[in-house]
Simulated assay, not measured.
Amino acid sequence: MNLTKLASVQLVLWNICRQYNQDPEAIFQKARLDPELMYQPGARYPLEKVAILWEEAAERIKDPCFGLAAATCWHPTHFGTLGYALLMSQSLRITLERLLRFHKVLSEARFGKIHEDREQGTLVFTLTYRDEKPYPPGREDAALAWIMSTLRINFHHNLTPVFVTFTHGRPACAGKYYELFKGPITFDAPTAALALPLDQVDVLLPGANEELAQFSDQAMSRYLATLNDDSWANRVRRLIMEHLPSGAITVEKTASELHISTRKLQRLLKEEGTTFLALLNATRMKLAKDYVQQDNMDLTEIAFLLGFSELSTFSRSFKRWTGQSPVKYRQAA
């Protein structure tokens, strides 16, 4: 199964690249990822391509500590509903528990674990890599930097970790780690981890709003229910969304990426009551409506993003789907 990650999360890396005067679009192009998907609610990227994205960024950005910039390059919207739910948590412990409980909203790969060490008086969050390769240094740094930033925003006071560990070696810019985390740092450690003092993890947070947080939890649970749908139709939809901008999405190509024959894919979809063409048209129609409602998107650009070679062909299809031309639909929205 091809694991995926919420596309909007990569806006963090996009912002980091811009901060370092690198062209993020070129980096996304190298990884064969469509940047427009980051602005589509629920759109997801294949994890294997996200890994390529971070590797390419590391090659272009000469600062080995670039991942730490994630601490100032994120916004709650980048992490969907979970981004806001984390900021409404009652305590630092609940913040981390919520992150792990609903991390699948962000990525289908398992992400971390929490361990309470009463003897040392710490609550330790540790990155885990059970479903994907270990993060390269920049991505590992970014993960812990973002988590530390989120916890500090929640705490509303100075928050110093008991210790922070990284699996990579000590870089020449190591001072940046001490400047950001303001606590003991260990490099070349067996795991990447962040430890918090136990006497602070259960303190009621000023921004806590458990009612809204639980409402967000319910929304995420509903989203995960759809994400857990591992039907062949759902797998095909994901591949269609990924390849639409190239215009090269066909039933043959889709079957090849799913490692089955075209005939078998057609049979499996038929058993689920659909066809490849029906899924392609439904996906195009849904994305078309979303795109057209965005005033800042040119209609010709939308046509190409949906795999149409001509604006006129897209306009005819859109009118067939909605009964209105794209221009009239946008005006009425």
Rank of each mutant, 00 (worst) to 15 (best):
L68Q: 05
G67A: 07
P64H: 08
A51P: 00
A71N: 08
Q40R: 14
K62D: 10
E55W: 07
M38I: 04
Y39N: 14
C73E: 01
A51C: 01
Y39F: 15
D63H: 11
F66W: 15
I52Y: 08
A51W: 06
L47M: 13
L47V: 15
L37D: 09
Y45Q: 09
A57H: 03
V50T: 14
A69W: 00
E56A: 15
L68P: 00
P64R: 10
I52H: 10
I61S: 04
A69M: 11
A51H: 10
A69P: 00
A43F: 09
Y45H: 10
L68I: 03
A43I: 06
E59M: 11
K49G: 02
T72C: 06
P41W: 08
L37P: 03
Y39G: 06
K49C: 01
I52L: 15
P41F: 10
E59I: 04
Y45E: 04
D63R: 12
E55S: 12
A69L: 06
I61F: 05
A70V: 01
Q40C: 12
A69N: 03
L47A: 12
D63I: 00
W54H: 14
E56C: 08
G67P: 01
A71L: 02
A58W: 01
R44H: 09
P64M: 09
G67W: 01
P64V: 03
P64C: 07
A51R: 11
L37Y: 07
T72I: 12
A71H: 13
C73H: 04
A70T: 04
A57V: 05
C73R: 05
Y45C: 06
D63M: 01
I52W: 13
Q40I: 15
R44K: 10
Y39K: 13
Q40D: 11
A43S: 15
T72L: 05
L53R: 04
P64W: 08
A43W: 08
W54G: 03
E48A: 09
A51F: 06
K62E: 13
A71K: 05
Y45N: 10
D63S: 15
D63Q: 13
L53I: 02
T72H: 10
W54R: 07
L53H: 05
A43L: 08
F66H: 12
A71D: 08
T72G: 06
M38E: 09
F66G: 01
C73S: 14
A58H: 04
Y45G: 09
L53K: 05
A57M: 03
T72W: 10
I61N: 02
G67Q: 01
A70L: 02
L47N: 12
